[in-house]
Design a protein around this nucleic acid. Structure first.
Lengths: 348, 348
DNA sequence: ATGAAAGCGCTAACAG
DNA sequence: CTGTTAGCGCTTTCAT
């Protein structure tokens, strides 16, 4: 309220309403509403239309979205509840993709980070529903199986970067298998035949999917699968560094690492031995973690998780723009990001 | 609507309203409103209170936040418009901090990534205002000077990770100078006296602030400032690697790097020469970019940018929880994250 | 102790 | 062509 009170009133100035404009233009609120919304199916004289528009501009009218949504019964909100994508370096792209796509369709993104706390998760979802969100994106910071939180029952929603086997929820996840395949193919194309795979020790879709892709590529190239070439490694620098001990005894010319961090550790191990990449060993990573991959020496060829697209696709499915059947889980391709850790000429 | 219509109605089931509950409990909506909001200052018989509560639970009543906010005239939204914090690895913590803090006070976070496009920025702000946000946080992905977008005029807002010299906007930024000081002190405490500073070439508060901090620490320790020890380096791995050429001629025992990436490059340069950290050279970085700092060999001692706190503090200022005067720019401390790239015993 | 009623700002029939 | 009116779901005096 902009009374002349001397108190420091930090509230926003004057919310000018349809009513104000109507009075100023000497017309009814309905008329103002029409021109404010640019409705052409209503017939208005150019004269009034102009006069109203003038008043609209003069007073600096801004519609109250709350009121608008109330009457329409549905808001322009899309909720995103995450267990920590905001916390994670590259998974933040899920937010980015969701926000961009939502925006593109006139929707605003409501985000809630739950840090995987079921209580917070529950409240976040309730609250979004109270705000009449059009739907909710439920996402995880790494690709995994989940069980849909009860609060999401009978809510319009789609799972992002996770999936729930039992449920009929629609989901969108990265295509780990295709990613594993494209990584391996890259090595195969350079003539490598004995390719080690430093797989993660964590049970996950990434672990099984990428392995399957690795085998797909091998099979397609007519190269036999040798289980001995699959090495368990902790999914971080230390894991990659340690794995070298095992890898050296394998007589391989290339290694496909579960992620960029493992690759980074492997780089270290090779450097200590004075070995060169890609001549002594060609390497491909996974994740395309910018800060690592693009700046390792040599820059790391890797595969990218489609986080941005995951968020965007989730919104598209939610809004019904990409129609997919109930229970479907869409897999998004993981593109190869070629750099210099795999020779461009024939290796070996 | 759950009519028996055969069409696929993906809309949420049945929005049960106050009215529904009132009828079910045989009371008026006012009464229901009272108990739904747990108002104790209104006197209601325990009997009705219980009966209404029962109906509330039975029907699974969920208030419509839109309607609630409409009548109260203000929403429970806080907007966050960023030029790309969602895009950046660690700056995503600004979102996280803002979201957590907003949540703590019953507010929801509306995010909009503008990718620094003024047009998008304008629309994002307008739209947030239409949604009657309580206030807007305007943030940048790296600490810098900005000019406040006109759309923000006369809006409740605070600048996060950026500041606008001319304006009377409140801002909250990292204390670069203190960060530079604490980093240098760490080296000084270990007995180092000739400490190189690999400063960034980018003109920025980080560049000038950290240098000032470096000098502060030197002065406090009675060590003379030698301009020759300040080396320009591109703020990435390549910059750190290249800077070694200059650094080797300097006869220093330690180096303070503008950021972790530069430190990473420097690690590489040292390794190539067979030099050891911290014995041959002690190193401290800046940013605490987890994926690098914690996993370098040895792990990197660094200074952390308080992104999470920046977001949280921004919200607190916005909501008036942390009262600060108009035009003030609060500086948040950058804590030291000690690891192993600085010896624990006396070096040199 | 409880209910009726007046809006919040806006949209959408329905009248004229 | 334009104005009147009835709500959207909820809060809040003011009666009773």
């Amino acid at each position: 309220m902009q009374t002349k009170g001397s108190g420091p009133e930090p509230t926003t100035p004057a919310p000018v309403t349809l009513h104000d404009v109507a009075r100023a233009a000497g017309v009814s609120v309905a008329t103002v509403s029409y021109v404010a919304n640019g409705r052409t199916n209503v017939r208005l004289s150019d004269a009034t239309r102009l006069r109203v528009q003038q008043a609209l501009d003069d007073l600096g009218y801004r519609p109250n979205a709350l009121a608008k949504n109330l009457v329409k019964g549905t808001s322009k909100f899309v909720g995103l509840v995450t267990d920590g994508v905001a916390t994670t370096p590259f998974a933040g792209q899920i937010i980015h993709g969701a926000q961009d796509e939502a925006w593109r369709h006139g929707f605003v993104l409501l985000v809630a980070n739950t840090d995987a706390d079921p209580q917070v998760e529950h409240e976040a979802i309730e609250m979004m529903r109270e705000h009449q969100v059009r739907g909710i994106l439920y996402s995880t910071w790494y690709h995994r199986e989940i069980t849909v939180p009860p609060a999401l029952d009978s809510a319009e929603m789609v799972l992002v970067n996770c999936y729930a086997p039992g449920s009929d929820a629609r989901a969108v996840v990265p295509d780990e298998r295709q990613g594993g395949r494209v990584a391996t193919e890259q090595l195969l194309e350079q003539g490598h035949r004995r390719i080690a795979f430093l797989n993660t020790t964590w049970e996950s879709p990434a672990r099984t999917g990428r392995l399957a892709g690795y085998r797909d590529a091998l099979a397609a190239a007519g190269v036999g699968f040798d289980p001995a070439l699959v090495i368990d490694a902790e999914p971080n620098q230390e894991g990659g560094y340690a794995a070298y001990e095992e890898l050296r005894r394998l007589d391989v010319t290339a290694a496909f690492c579960h992620n960029d961090r493992v690759a980074m550790g492997l780089y270290d191990a090779l450097r200590v031995r004075g070995l060169k990449i890609p001549t002594d060993l060609a390497i491909v990573g996974f994740d395309n973690q910018e800060v690592i991959a693009a700046h390792l020496r040599p820059p790391l060829t890797t595969v990218q998780l489609p986080h941005y697209e995951l968020g965007a696709a989730g919104v598209r499915i939610l809004l019904g723009i990409d129609p997919v059947p109930t229970g479907s889980v869409s897999k998004l391709a993981c593109p190869l990001v070629p750099r210099e850790s795999v020779a461009s000429g024939l290796a070996d």
